[in-house]
Simulated assay, not measured.
Amino acid sequence: MVRPPLTPAERDRGRRLGALLRAARGDRSPAEVAAASGVSQEALRKIETGRVPTPAFFTVAALAGALDVPLDRLLADLAPDTALTA
């Protein structure tokens, strides 16, 4: 399966996700967060730097749980400025 290239907006959202997770990590070391979440240090580093702009949901959920960040807060912080309608 060939994956289509990411759009600039998707890459930007990945960078913002990384920045949010990095800020939530605060003074904790990447090793500590990796151990608490079950996500490798390498994966955490790549997500925080935006090199993995679309991490799997369960990876984000594990990191959010280890960092005590509600998923709905991450979603709200990453949502585009325009209102989403169903």
Score class of each variant (00 low, 15 high):
A19Q: 14
D81E: 15
T85M: 08
R15V: 11
G65E: 15
D68G: 11
P53D: 07
A23Q: 14
R16L: 12
G26I: 08
G18M: 05
A34Y: 02
D68R: 11
A83D: 15
A61F: 03
P80K: 10
L74K: 00
L21C: 03
T49L: 14
A61K: 04
S37V: 01
A34D: 02
L6A: 08
R3H: 10
R45M: 10
G26E: 14
L20A: 06
L21R: 01
P53A: 08
S40P: 02
D81W: 07
L74R: 01
L63R: 00
G14M: 04
P30K: 13
L78Q: 04
T82Q: 11
I47W: 00
L63Q: 01
A35R: 05
L44R: 01
Q41C: 10
P5D: 13
R25D: 05
D27K: 08
R51D: 15
L44G: 01
P55R: 03
F57N: 08
T7D: 05
D77F: 06
S29N: 09
L75T: 14
A24E: 09
G14W: 02
L71R: 04
A23D: 14
G38Y: 00
E48C: 05
D12G: 07
R15S: 07
P4Y: 06
L17D: 01
T59I: 04
R15L: 13
S29P: 02
R28L: 11
D68E: 12
R28W: 05
A36I: 02
L78D: 03
F58E: 15
P53I: 09
G26W: 09
P30E: 14
G26L: 09
R13D: 06
P55L: 05
R25P: 02
V39S: 00
D27L: 11
